[in-house]
Design a protein around this nucleic acid. Structure first.
Lengths: 222, 222
DNA sequence: GATCGTTTGAAACGGTCGTTTGACTGGAAG
DNA sequence: CTTCCAGTCAAACGACCGTTTCAAACGATC
């Protein structure tokens, strides 16, 4: 046992579980697969995390705290620089960059990115709990910022569009295979900076699109 | 045995499996849950479908054939009406409407819609096979139509944007809960027509957004 | 060196999974 | 009546699941 890291077992389990959750999904990943990939004993999971749900929560919380903290930091920065009125591109950048770049700062490649995509598609109850715990603060900051950044669009319409935008981002996190398939290999999903640029451009245009025929008292159809 | 429908057992299994797959996902749905919900014997699944994978394929194929047939029919119609050059809104309508409206033509409510969303997020191998079987024809027709409808955008950029658009659509199919959460109940996910209008508007703006600063001969990047 | 709480080890628990088996049903065909 | 066969049924198969148990090994403290 190397004295370098007294938490080698714990982090080893987290790393292995992260990779398997990202690859196969949570429900399809057994604790035996996790522990054998990590090279530790099966009982270590329950000793360190209490249960499989505890492990799931720990795996997601570790990355989400970092991502969401960075998101809020970037939003602070661009709000300060923009004099309290950042552009929609700036706000979207602050939202998507921490997720998509995370794979670059970790040796695990794009594992954390795909793990993040799972958050939005796994129907598990424990995921629901992690989401509500981790995304409250982010939603309370980003939703008003986006609404302010597209002042010509009614708020209800903006909320729908945020919903769509989350889907586009989750797809970008989760699936790199289909893009290569539909593009016949012309698009390179591993080009993180290109993906960020393109995604922000796509979302900014969608979010700031002209509102439908105005429905107030005076309907000025454009 | 009612002589009204000699395939009552088979379709009963399909209906029950469809609902459970949509609600919990495929991996989290056991054959025992399916057969007990359908009120049939466990062995009936293997008798009629051979295996769980066979059932999965049958469940998805039943709906996908209808949806993709309708998509191609609508694309034909709007290409004919548009003189071979339909607008991006028309093409997106043809792609989105059959999925989102399917819940309205079936007594099963929005089950088929959520089932469809699962296609894009389940990591299973059999899903991969169903996708490649069912989406080849649709992709071969729709991708060129979309590329033609946004002539000012480079083709590679359009492919990225189609990737984003699929994510937004899948999110709309799969998740009605989060929209209600982030909107505090102001947005009504059961408003199918409103969702279609808003989604098409969002996607059309994103797909036809101005291309990045031209990088013709000399690439400005790096 | 003895004693303590912490961490790891092998093994087993009850339960559920997909799948298979073999007997039983009913009605059509000979 | 006998034969046949698609269809249904209860029961069981081996494999794997999450979880638990308990003994052994460990470093720190007295």
């Amino acid at each position: 046992m190397p004295p370098t890291d007294p938490h080698a077992t714990k982090t080893g389990i987290l790393d292995a579980a992260e990779r398997l959750f990202a690859d196969r999904g949570i429900a399809a990943t057994s604790l035996r697969a996790v522990t054998s990939a990590a090279g530790v004993n099966l009982a270590a999971v329950h000793y360190h995390f209490g249960s499989k749900d505890g492990l799931v929560q720990a795996v997601f919380s570790r990355r989400l705290e970092a991502v969401n903290g960075e998101r809020l930091r970037l939003l602070d920065a661009c709000e300060e620089a923009g004099g309290g009125a950042p552009t929609i591109e700036d706000v979207l950048h602050a939202f998507v960059v921490p997720v998509l770049r995370m794979g670059l700062t970790l040796e695990s490649g794009d594992v954390a990115k795909r793990l993040f995509g799972r958050l939005h598609v796994e129907p598990s109850q424990v995921i629901e709990r992690v989401m509500s715990e981790q995304f409250g603060a982010v939603a309370r900051r980003f939703i008003p910022a986006i609404v302010r950044a597209v002042p010509d669009v009614p708020e209800e319409e903006v909320l729908w569009r945020i919903h769509f935008a989350i889907g586009a981002m989750a797809q970008t996190c989760l699936d790199t295979h289909r893009l290569q398939m539909i593009s016949g290999g012309r698009c390179d999903p591993s080009d993180v900076d290109g993906a960020i640029e393109r995604l922000v451009r796509f979302l900014a245009a969608g979010l700031s699109a002209a509102a439908p025929a105005a429905q107030p008292a005076d309907g000025g159809r454009q």
